[in-house]
Simulated scan of single mutants.
Amino acid sequence: MNILHTITVKQVLTVSTKEALQKRYEDQKFQLKREHEQLQFEWKKIERAKKYPSQKLSQHFQKEMEEKLEKIKLLDFQLEQLAILPIGSELKEKEVQGMIDIQVGDNWDEAALSKTIIIEDGIIKEIR
């Protein structure tokens, strides 16, 4: 019988993957800053027009801008952690679903069912 099972995919941190992750985090941070600035601009524009109730509108814009700032703080933290991590560290990248064949008499042990795929520079290096 085949069953679906979650498989963890981990990436080995190399110089090139570290640089790529750093660039991705910085790009996301830049995009969030732009979105935050755009929200500020839209908020002021709508406030000047005074077409909508200002209390709910202010709350909505403030909530959106706070969410953007929280995401920026998280990215700053991730960038700090990335700088600390040594080359060769394994980072959990994602989880995927895979098929596992089980038969009557197989040992139903979580360790036997847990599978991990190790990727280094985009190439599968190991399946545990």
Rank of each mutant, 00 (worst) to 15 (best):
L32E: 06
K51L: 15
I117Q: 02
Q31H: 08
K18S: 06
Q55A: 05
A20V: 02
Q55H: 09
L91W: 04
R24M: 06
G88A: 02
E93S: 09
K115E: 04
K68W: 01
H5C: 14
S54L: 13
H5G: 05
K73W: 04
T8S: 11
R128P: 14
E66H: 11
E120P: 02
E95P: 02
I118M: 04
Q28L: 02
M1V: 03
K29S: 05
I118T: 14
A20T: 13
W108I: 14
Q59A: 11
L85W: 07
R128I: 03
L69K: 14
Q28D: 08
A83N: 15
D109K: 15
Q59L: 11
A20F: 04
E95A: 03
H36P: 00
T14W: 09
I100L: 13
I7Y: 01
E37S: 09
V12G: 07
T116V: 14
L69C: 00
E64V: 06
K29H: 05
L79N: 07
K73D: 10
S54M: 13
Y52I: 10
Q62H: 11
E110H: 12
K68T: 04
Q38Y: 07
I46E: 14
K33F: 01
Q78T: 00
K56N: 13
L113M: 12
Q78P: 01
L85N: 08
D109Q: 15
E70P: 00
L113V: 01
I118R: 11
R34M: 06
A49T: 05
K23W: 04
K125I: 04
H5Y: 03
E35R: 14
W108V: 11
L13Y: 05
S89A: 11
L4Q: 15
L4G: 08
S114I: 10
S58P: 01
L69I: 01
W108F: 10
E42A: 06
E37F: 00
L91Q: 08
K73F: 02
Q28E: 12
D106R: 14
I3C: 06
N2I: 10
L75R: 09
L69A: 08
R128H: 09
E90R: 12
Q97T: 08
Q81S: 12
I7V: 13
S114W: 05
E66L: 08
T8F: 00
D109W: 10
F61H: 11
R128G: 08
